[in-house]
Every structure is written in C-alpha cells, then in structure tokens.
Simulated assay, not measured.
Amino acid sequence: MNTPHTPRLLPWTSPDDKPCYLFTDREGGYVARYADDVEALQLAMGVGLLEHARDLIGDPAADARQLRYLSAQLSAALRDAVRVAESRGERLGDGDAPSDQRL
C-alpha cells in the first residue's frame, strides 16, 4: 500500500505571496530537484550577504541608506532561510509548527 507524502513547501511564493506546495508521490522529480537547487542558492546568497554585512557594519563611512538597504536584504535572506528550514523540517516529519505561522 502506498502512503501519501506530505506536501512539500516550496522555496518561492505565488504572485500574491501565498505559499506554494508540491504534491507528489514521486521522490526526486524535476520540480523537487529544482526546489533543492533554489534552496541551495538562497542559503548560499544568505551566507554571502552575511559576509557583506560584516564588512559594511564595520565601515564607519557606511551611511543610513546603505544600512537600510542591507537591513532589507538581510530580512529577505532570513525569510528564505526560515522557509527552507520549515520545508525541511516538515519533510523530516516535524510538522509541529502551526500553519498560521507560515511565511
């Protein structure tokens, strides 16, 4: 007997900023592999942004505009990282997060 798979939270949202899910009983399909690649890219970009943040925060010549932009980019990177963590946690069977807490 086949067991149903938990829908996978994808690392992107719909145009109206709603979560997107992948419903499939197939492991390693094209969309799942693409989502894995997007997640890896999002996390790598977050690491790069943290390195940039360290440099910019330590620069006494950095102005408020630069720091606001950095803040917005760090916020987006954190949102992506939380979405990746939530998706991976759900796939591990850790579905304890309330659905109203989703990003």
Rank of each mutant, 00 (worst) to 15 (best):
A77E: 00
G29W: 09
P4H: 12
T13C: 11
Q73T: 02
A97W: 12
A32P: 03
H5R: 15
R83W: 00
Q66V: 07
G89C: 08
T24Q: 12
D80Y: 00
Q101F: 05
Q73W: 00
L22V: 05
S75T: 14
T3L: 07
L92D: 04
V47L: 10
G48K: 00
A77G: 11
A44I: 02
R79F: 05
H52N: 05
L67C: 07
L41P: 01
V38F: 12
A85H: 09
S87M: 05
A62N: 03
V82F: 06
L103D: 09
P60D: 06
P15L: 07
D94F: 15
D36K: 05
Y34H: 13
R54W: 01
D100H: 13
D17A: 03
R33A: 00
G29C: 14
G46E: 08
L56Q: 00
L49M: 13
T24M: 11
L78K: 15
L70T: 09
R65I: 11
S99L: 14
R102H: 10
T24F: 10
Y69M: 08
P98W: 15
Y30A: 12
L50C: 14
R33P: 02
A62S: 14
R68H: 10
P98E: 14
S99N: 08
A53I: 10
G28W: 03
D80P: 02
G58T: 09
D94I: 09
L74M: 09
G48V: 03
A85Q: 07
R79N: 05
D80I: 01
S75I: 06
P4T: 08
P11A: 13
A32V: 03
G93V: 00
S14T: 15
A97G: 07
L74H: 02
R79V: 09
Y21L: 13
G48S: 12
L103Y: 05
A72Y: 09
C20D: 03
G29R: 13
E51C: 09
V38K: 13
I57R: 02
L49V: 15
H52I: 05
Q42C: 04
H52T: 12
F23T: 04
S99V: 15
A72M: 13
D59T: 06
R54S: 01
S75W: 02
D63K: 02
V31F: 11
D63I: 15
D17Q: 05
L10S: 04
